[in-house]
Amino acid sequence: MKPFDFKQPATLEQALTLWHPGAAWLGGGTNLVDLMKIGVARPDTVIDITRIPGLSEIDLADDGSARIGALVKNSDLADHPGFAARFPMVAEALLSGASGQLRNAATLGGNLMQAPRCPWFQLPESACNRRNPGSGCDARQVGGLALIGASEGCSAIHPSDLCVPLLALDAVVEVAGPDGHREVPFATLHRLPGEHPETATTLAPGELIVALRLPAGAARFAGHAAYLKVRERTSFAFALTSAAAALELRDGRITAARLALGGIAPKPWRVPEAEALLIGQPPGAEVFARAAAHALEGADPAARKNWRRLLAIRTAQKALHMAALGTPETLPALPGSVFRSPAQEVSHA
């Protein structure tokens, strides 16, 4: 770790004044401190924002909307009974990520700003345009990582679980910066690498996430929502693929639908046209398959034969199926898992 100045501003204004190129915001530290240890982040100043008042509240409004402070811990948000009832797939996504210890430290704002989990990004000696613009991309030697939305310069995958349902639910990010406050629709928060992989979000330097809002309309999916995450081990693993699916059903037909995918692209992925295919249809395997396939339509030609593309389609399909069945009364024992219950009973065909 490079030596750094440690600052602990007492107000948002102080924090914004302290920021300069080379400074880094510190929330829970679960991502930044790790990146500093492995030499990927080398800030000269670390600005600990956790003492700033007013950023740790969870407010549920009567109209169904919610406002969550940027410093709210992942575990506190997931365990907030009112929040989990209103936005079950957000709670489930939170609980499917990392470990109990990390969720107790990680903050909402930090989760939105997570660095990608490309192995070459994490090895400072290797070529990585995101870490070191212009140095190249060592991930190209394995044909790239992201199935969709990658560029020649970067194909790193966005690692967050939480961001997947937030994108699906049209969340809004509140940002403070030297030029005042502004709101960023979630769909425009993360950007594709294009020719500038080093710029992962649309936040300007020195801007800070202060809160996140879920609109009133998001709560109508509470009864039919699911977050599903396929992993290489049963828990404590990043998603190979994940999907957040939410439906509104009236009289046996889908009146509103949301579908977002994780683990496949440089940012959480959502295709409104895929959702549109569901509207007016009765829930069913065929229409879910069509919508899921459509969500992957934009896959890079090279990824067409990639097994993860097939897995992503099936993940989306199954998430839609689970959403149609209805949100369970209580969160499953293994949040987000393919394995919903430990039932031992086995039937012979």
Binding site: F6, Q8, L26, G29, T30, V33, D34, V46, D48, T50, S75, G100, Q101, L102, N104, A105
Partner: peptide, 18 residues
Amino acid sequence: TVLVNGRRTTACLTLAAT
């Protein structure tokens, strides 16, 4: 893992200064 303010957390990713 230690308890910080009663909650389990990883001491390795917690800067002492915080």
